[in-house]
Amino acid sequence: MVTSRIDHKWGMVVDLDRCNGCQACVVACQVENNLPINDKNAFLQNRAYEWIRIERYWEGDYPNIKARFIPILCQHCENAPCEPVCPVFATYRNDEGLNVQLYNRCVGTRYCINNCPYQVRFFNYWHPNWPERLQNQLNPDVTVRTRGITEKCTFCIQRLRRGQLQVERRNGGELGDSTLRAGNHMPACVQACPTNALTFGDQNDAQSPIKPYFDDVNRYNIHHESERQTRGYRMLEDMNTKPNVIYLKKVDPNKGSSGGHHG
């Protein structure tokens, strides 16, 4: 139980200019969140679990061809299309800005999967299996999901909870140096990213490095995109889902700052 009343609103900034497509985040996520191992069959059946995935697109024609990488994870939309369609409230918005999934409540209608434009929800078509020698690597803080359940990125909520218990409660609920910050708390993917392309933080924390980006993108909506001061944008912004993940456009030295990609 978290007794702290500190008002968090988590968010993430993904700097596409720094992402080199190394997939460290994907592996870290896989390990942290007890995702089943994506073997050959999982890919052949198009049923791989990738709570965060790196999409690779080619830009330009040979020989001036460039690989572009976009890490895509659950956008934790403020206005999430997956939430209203669940008949049993298995997915809902919690008071820290996260879109969370209750595995015990999920009945497997898969409507949320259909209605997620980012395709970041995964259905357990099979019961997950790990080889005997890997049983001990499972994270004890994270549930192993059974078959018939939809799952997705949680922003490593187990880490958030542990951090809140260890740091915030000690201080009586005041937001001080010892509260969770971008520096002292991060999901597995952020921690693993070698180029710091991913930054996690609290939008309500004035000193959080992600705050300027969110302020900027919130101030100028999609119709005033050209007035934005930063490279920030939201994916599929015209869908009005209001994600809590912001992407920073690739810096293209030849083109100024207009190399953005809207998914």
Binding site: N79, P81, P84, I222, D238, M239, N240
Partner: peptide, 9 residues
Amino acid sequence: WYGRLEVEQ
């Protein structure tokens, strides 16, 4: 109304 897309709103 249900779709909540901004243009439609």
